[in-house]
Simulated assay, not measured.
Amino acid sequence: MTATEDTPLRAGFRWLASKRVTLGVVSLLLAVFGFELLVWLAYGVEGWQYFFLANLDPTPGWVMAPFAHRNPSHLLTTLVVIVVYGGLVETVLPDHRFLAFYVFAGYASTLAQLAAYLGGAPGLGTLGASGAALGLVALYVVRMGGRAIWAPATVTVVDGVFTGSGLVIVATVLANDFVPGVVFASGTAPLGHVGGLLAGVAGGVAVLLAERKSSPDPSLGT
């Protein structure tokens, strides 16, 4: 391989560099986390909870919770999923629709967990972009699963790898949240994750239907 030849790593970075909305979301989440640290230092844990935690009491947390994280590991794991599956979904959706879906999935996640608290579920509150991240995964998996049935010739091996990885991510999260004795991470928001996933399923179906309408001949699919 010569110096002028591309490498998978270089190609991957170039691909990611073209995903400006995904990178914008990542930058926003990093900026919010930095702001969280400043609030924590200035006002302590109670001030941090007031600004960033969504619970049944009306606070700024109702707005900020889908963009905030409780610690660096919480942020990092979410960012990894957003970078990969956000980039994949951004390839399919126009910028404004991608951003609208991401925000919708984030707030659908928060509202679902708040509904769980209203129904008597335990917990001090919810925050995090994991619901939105799972929404991206679900949208991609549903869209590619549908294409595998409708237009299998348009689905590549790489598509299959990311679809399979997405299914593993979803199964792992649901097992952690709902299967007794399975704990990969503690302190999660189970109904919040479900809310994000359902938003992603709805988004994936909508994308698939739009693609079928615009290209009824599978051989023309992209």
Rank of each mutant, 00 (worst) to 15 (best):
T2R: 11
T2P: 10
T4K: 12
E5L: 11
E5V: 11
T7G: 07
L9H: 06
G12H: 09
G12Y: 08
G12D: 02
F13R: 06
F13M: 12
F13D: 01
R14H: 06
W15I: 07
K19A: 12
K19E: 04
V25K: 05
V26Q: 08
S27D: 06
L28G: 00
L28I: 12
A31S: 08
F33M: 08
F33L: 00
F35E: 06
E36S: 03
L37M: 13
V39W: 00
W40S: 03
W40H: 04
A42M: 09
V45W: 02
G47K: 03
W48Y: 15
W48A: 04
Q49N: 12
F52E: 09
A54I: 01
A54K: 01
L56N: 01
D57L: 11
G61S: 11
W62F: 09
W62V: 08
W62L: 12
V63Y: 11
M64F: 08
M64P: 00
A68S: 13
A68P: 02
R70G: 02
N71T: 14
H74S: 15
T77I: 09
T78R: 04
V80H: 04
V80D: 07
V81K: 02
V81M: 11
V83L: 15
V83W: 00
V84T: 14
G86S: 11
G86W: 06
G87V: 01
G87F: 08
L88Q: 11
T91Y: 07
T91N: 07
V92T: 10
R97N: 03
R97C: 06
F98C: 05
F98L: 06
L99P: 14
L99T: 07
L99S: 07
Y102N: 06
G106Y: 01
G106M: 07
A108V: 12
L111W: 13
L111K: 01
Q113D: 13
L114F: 13
Y117D: 05
Y117I: 06
G120A: 04
A121G: 14
A121I: 09
P122N: 04
G123K: 04
G123W: 02
G123L: 07
L124A: 09
G125E: 03
A129Q: 05
G131V: 04
G131E: 10
L134I: 04
R143Y: 13
M144V: 14
G145C: 15
G145R: 10
G146E: 00
A148V: 10
I149T: 05
I149V: 14
I149N: 00
P152C: 14
A153P: 01
A153I: 03
A153K: 12
T154C: 09
G160E: 01
G160I: 02
G160T: 02
V161P: 04
V161R: 05
F162V: 05
F162S: 02
T163Y: 04
T163P: 08
G164E: 03
S165D: 01
S165K: 00
S165H: 00
A171K: 06
T172L: 12
L174H: 12
N176S: 04
V179P: 07
P180D: 08
G181E: 05
F184H: 06
A185M: 13
A185V: 15
S186C: 00
G187Y: 09
T188E: 07
A189T: 10
G195R: 10
G196Q: 01
L197N: 11
L198P: 13
A199S: 10
V201H: 04
V201G: 12
G204D: 09
G204T: 14
V205M: 05
V205T: 06
V205A: 10
L208M: 08
K213L: 13
P218Q: 10
L220E: 09
T222H: 14
